[in-house]
């Protein structure tokens, strides 16, 4: 991270220190300390050992890192862990309840909505967020509101079908 370059005009600052952060991740309170520049994505993967959330582009372009923060889907690569202190975070590991898959997880299996699976945790978290928003209804709307999740294998038609099933809509 440190490039050692001298930055004219920047006042000399003490070396940044780790900041204590508390997150409620999948219903469990987790406390840890991170340097300020650690993204929520890296905190989940490297500090909390929750590697279900994937690091794809790390620039908010692919959606593989999508998680739900306080119920809203966001790109965890484009937010700092320190900025989310106190937040409720739901990752792919937290969607199943009491041994039963979330309806959208089951729908992804039913519709074969993936091949390699790398984008799938982000797709499913994004889809859960979409269903909670309650706005997208038609296939066109589902495609539009899922456009932040890229699937390199091209499973899009099946992903739309899976979301329609989970929404209770007719495919």
């Amino acid at each position: 991270m440190q490039d050692g370059a001298v930055h004219p005009g920047a006042s000399p600052s003490p070396l940044p220190e780790k900041v204590s952060v508390t997150l409620i991740v999948n219903g469990i309170e987790r406390r840890f300390s991170v340097l300020p520049w650690v993204s929520l994505l890296d905190a989940l993967r490297d500090h909390l050992d929750l590697t279900g959330t994937k690091k794809g582009c790390d620039h908010g372009q692919c959606g593989a890192c999508t998680v739900l923060v306080d119920g809203r889907r966001i790109n965890s690569c484009l937010t700092l862990a320190v900025m989310r202190d106190g937040a409720h975070v739901t990752t792919i590991e937290g969607l199943a309840a009491n041994g039963a898959l979330d309806p959208l997880q089951q729908a992804f299996i039913d519709h074969d909505a993936f091949q390699c699976g790398y984008c799938t945790p982000g797709q499913i978290c994004s889809g859960v967020g979409l269903i909670a928003e309650g706005r997208a209804k038609t296939a066109d709307e589902i495609r539009e509101f899922m456009s932040g999740n890229i699937c390199r294998c091209g499973a899009y038609p099946n992903i739309v079908s899976a979301i329609q099933q989970a929404m209770g809509a007719k495919p």
């Binding site: 966001i74 790109n75 484009l78 979409l130 928003e133 932040g148």
Partner: peptide, 9 residues
Amino acid sequence: GASQQLRNM
């Protein structure tokens, strides 16, 4: 503009 994830942030 953007994606729903980005618009949420």
